[in-house]
Simulated assay, not measured.
Amino acid sequence: MDRVRAQHLIDFLGNNLGPDLVVACYLSRPGEPGTLQAVGMLRAAGAKVLLPAFGPDASAADPQWAWYAGPEELQRGPFGIPQPTTERLRPQTLAEAQVIICPGLAATASGDRLGTGGGWYDRALTWSDPKAAVVLLLNDNEVLDSLPTAENDVPVDVIITEERVIAVE
């Protein structure tokens, strides 16, 4: 399923793929839709990929980033999430991304997103370019009719599952 989702992502990006595209993407932890394959496919297509770079406290208020430099430049981080070993970059670096792939537990077809509970991505997205597409990778059964939302919950623009691509209107 991860490969199918990754291929849907590549197909969605289409002609935008190449060295001018910057994609920010989380690295998944066990139980989440896998992203390492998607990150590898993005990089193989020429895109530059930013990864979250957590310090010892993964809930730090200032989200840092690092460039993906291949699987050999990853190490185990907090909560078992792979971490880049490349240079840490400031939160403002996220503004370079035209596409931001964020984690979530569920979403609605109208773009409401239920995050994983820490608020890291909601804080990080305040540094993003408002024109960046926010993408959520889910299992198809995690697309629900409704979800509770809070004022600080950032909606998504696109939901990609193993079965479909939902462009939120």
Rank of each mutant, 00 (worst) to 15 (best):
L51K: 04
L137A: 06
D57S: 11
G14R: 07
G14M: 12
G118F: 06
L50H: 00
R29N: 05
S59K: 14
A44Y: 05
L74T: 00
P33S: 09
Y68C: 06
E169W: 03
G40T: 03
T35G: 12
V4Y: 03
P84Q: 12
V135K: 03
Q64E: 10
G70C: 08
A106I: 11
A45F: 05
P30A: 14
A132W: 11
G14K: 06
R164Q: 15
Q64V: 09
L94Q: 02
Q98H: 01
V22H: 01
A69W: 03
R3D: 14
A95I: 01
D2A: 11
E72F: 11
A124V: 08
I166T: 15
A47S: 13
I101E: 00
K131D: 11
V49S: 05
C102H: 02
P71V: 12
A132C: 08
R5A: 02
K48W: 08
G40Y: 01
A61P: 09
G117H: 06
T149D: 05
P78G: 06
A109K: 09
M1L: 14
S28K: 01
A60K: 08
A66N: 04
D122S: 11
R29L: 13
P71T: 12
L125I: 09
P130V: 08
V134Y: 02
P82Y: 03
T85F: 03
F79Y: 07
N152K: 11
E169I: 07
A132S: 14
T126S: 09
L89M: 06
D122E: 11
A69V: 04
I101H: 02
G46C: 04
Q75I: 14
L42A: 01
A124Q: 02
V165E: 07
V22A: 01
